[in-house]
């Protein structure tokens, strides 16, 4: 009896030990891989391409984007991404980096909205100017603190709308953003999940986009990230630049405010 009990205890201990070792090594390998890649983040190439696109005369008006006002004044890019989304008096709208960039492509360069947003994300064999430009614009906020206090009434309203959407459950899996991103220290399969309702959690997430995604072999913008979250929730995908996505960004950036930007990031 005693021997059997010992054997059982040993088996259980081995079982648990084996699991922990296997898991630990998987996580270690992922961490190592990330470290290796962070040394030469492929997004840096895209950042350079974005800078060239920003400065090159393009579109029907053959104008560059250098006079684009991303919120800090025409041509002032340093730290601009970290303060978006924000209310813009000229459009009377709360705009994020991507909707503002598209606005500049239309007003300064003369592109139609359809032309400007045609390739808003890349596919194998199809580059996206918006991805390159946003990677460049994001990089210009590197080291800046996220600062979206949402004090303007329209910004405050969008932050509330974003919070409402964050907790809104629907679809054939009863999902909301909160069920995966409302708790501390959880993971889905082996993927760590951030608690996006805390400054630390939202900060870790928001400070590292745009980000190179190893699993996708591409840089993803925040719009792309959030639109795909909704796809994973088994909802229809929102339109690019939809106010619902911008509202979520305001809510998340407000929560993340104070965190230092480190873009482009690199993720699974």
């Amino acid at each position: 009896m005693r021997t059997r009990l010992h054997a059982l205890v040993a088996t259980v201990a081995l079982g648990i030990g084996g699991t922990a070792v296997a898991q630990g090594s998987t996580m270690d390998e992922i961490a190592k891989y990330r470290e290796m890649l962070a040394d030469g983040n492929p997004a840096e190439l895209l950042e350079m391409k974005g800078e060239a696109l920003w400065k090159k005369p393009r579109g029907p008006r053959s104008a560059s984007l250098e006079q684009c006002d991303m919120g800090l004044g025409p041509g002032k890019l340093e730290g601009a991404y970290a303060q978006l989304p924000r209310y813009f008096a000229d459009t009377k709208k709360v705009m994020d980096a991507e909707s503002r960039l598209v606005h500049c492509m239309m007003t300064l360069q003369g592109f139609s909205e359809t032309e400007a947003t045609k390739n808003w994300f890349s596919k194998p064999g199809q580059d996206s100017d918006i991805e390159a430009l946003i990677t460049y614009i994001g990089g210009q906020s590197n080291g800046a603190k996220i600062n979206v206090p949402a004090r303007h009434p329209e910004e405050a309203r969008m932050a509330k709308v974003g919070e409402y959407i964050f907790y809104r459950r629907s679809g054939p899996q009863d999902f909301s953003c909160a069920i995966c991103h409302g708790q501390e220290g959880k993971r889905i399969r082996l993927q760590d999940l951030g608690k996006l309702t805390s400054q630390a959690g939202a900060g870790a997430a928001m400070s590292t986009w745009p980000s190179y995604r190893v699993s996708q072999g591409a840089v993803w913008t925040m719009q792309r990230r959030l639109i795909d979250c909704m796809r994973q929730a088994r909802w229809p995908e929102p339109s690019y630049l939809a106010d619902s996505i911008i509202a979520l960004e305001v809510f998340l950036q407000k929560t993340a405010s104070g965190t230092v930007m480190q873009t482009p990031g690199i993720k699974r």
Binding site: I165, P236, A242, S244, A247
Partner: peptide
Amino acid sequence: AEQIFRSGF
């Protein structure tokens, strides 16, 4: 918020 969410599709 419902109106904004729904009109996003």
